[in-house]
Design a protein around this nucleic acid. Sequence first.
DNA 1: TCCCCGGAGATTGAATGTAGAATCAGGCCG
DNA 2: CGGCCTGATTCTACATTCAATCTCCGGGGA
Lengths: 226, 226
Amino acid sequence: MGATSAERIADAVYERLREEIFAGDLAPGARLSVPALAERLEVSRSPVREAVFRLVQDRLASEEPRRGAVVAEIGARELAAIYDVREVLEGLAARLAVENAGRRLVTALREVLGEHERAVRDTDVAAVTEADMRFHELIRRASGNAEVVRLLDGVQTQVRLAMRTTRVMSGPRQAVDDHRAILTAIESGDPDAAERAARAHVFRLRSTLLRQAEDMGDVGAMEDMG
Amino acid sequence: MGATSAERIADAVYERLREEIFAGDLAPGARLSVPALAERLEVSRSPVREAVFRLVQDRLASEEPRRGAVVAEIGARELAAIYDVREVLEGLAARLAVENAGRRLVTALREVLGEHERAVRDTDVAAVTEADMRFHELIRRASGNAEVVRLLDGVQTQVRLAMRTTRVMSGPRQAVDDHRAILTAIESGDPDAAERAARAHVFRLRSTLLRQAEDMGDVGAMEDMG
DNA sequence: TCCCCGGAGATTGAATGTAGAATCAGGCCG
DNA sequence: CGGCCTGATTCTACATTCAATCTCCGGGGA
């Protein structure tokens, strides 16, 4: 069978594997054998190879020389590094969003924040994660800077994987409060305030995550802490 | 023939194409036909396909649906977006470098700065570019943050390509002065000062590059400026 | 003169074949 | 009883082949 432009098999396999990783069906450390996956998914090795390659590019998997790819593990040290970067990028995104965006952003953020609050009250973990991610996604898309969007998309992917690896979550109420502060700053139209609020939020996330990782005695994390 | 661990063909092809792009042998807009490249390089299509895919991931090439990949062109608008990101990342790198690094960094930076000055005096464009890149590379590697290194490596790749696309360069003497200021700040051990100096440097680069792009009436750039 | 359509060529995406290398298990020797 | 060696298995990396689709260009019709 030739190429089916409608939906490429390689894309479908990529999405499938991505979701299995985020869902935990493919745990960090699991081997991504191309022949094995091809047989399980009932496709040839070519699209599987491409999909695995893309996972490696996304840092969702890592190449072990001559042993193939395995689902990546993110330790506390790596997570800290990612959050250092995330802090400045989210700050930049918030600043640019204020400088660029109009009322539509504020409206959309209010709605997502409402969903976020509701999800926290209902202790609906999946909905909390969803709303949290969407809040940040709205801001970066409003930045009008494609590079910021691309890099923060990558950061979000890493963070989602890290949540699988370390099993830690930020305090849900703190996150809502932080988001409200960011929204207020954006509403005020003050780029500096928006940047500060976004950075402060990420900084707190970083502190919380790392503290939790330590408290849990996260082995994979701690062995990286030196 | 099976896999030759010593040097993967896919890696060799990737490096080769990268260099041809940076050297201008493959100009922006040039088509990267997998069959044609495979024939020219006398390898099969498999490793070429992988190499082209990596170029696309690096944003050195872009996929044109059903027409294959072409060497990417970076317009003024995109370059501005990249420099917005670069400014905050270089600032972070300089800050972390001060917080982390020891005397070795300062020594290495002094040496590269010396080479840079010499190259500017000799108007050796290749050496100037080389020294300039190495200065920034030293700082980010000294940051101890793998994510910063990875993202700034990507930024540097984009910038090198943009230089091919737009034919603009920052003022060489300004760059040397800026670098000296960054070095001084790092020597002083003040993270805030280092961050400010690095950001100011990138901000000036951004201004210079965009002004030159406008002056040159850069078509590819201007059509993006709206 | 301009627009639409059709055929030829080229290209991607997928499937499959093959060689070399590394891992892992199990048995043998010290 | 422990460490080393060896053989089978599995995998990666590269090559090759095939089908389907798109692009491009030229000719015919309005």
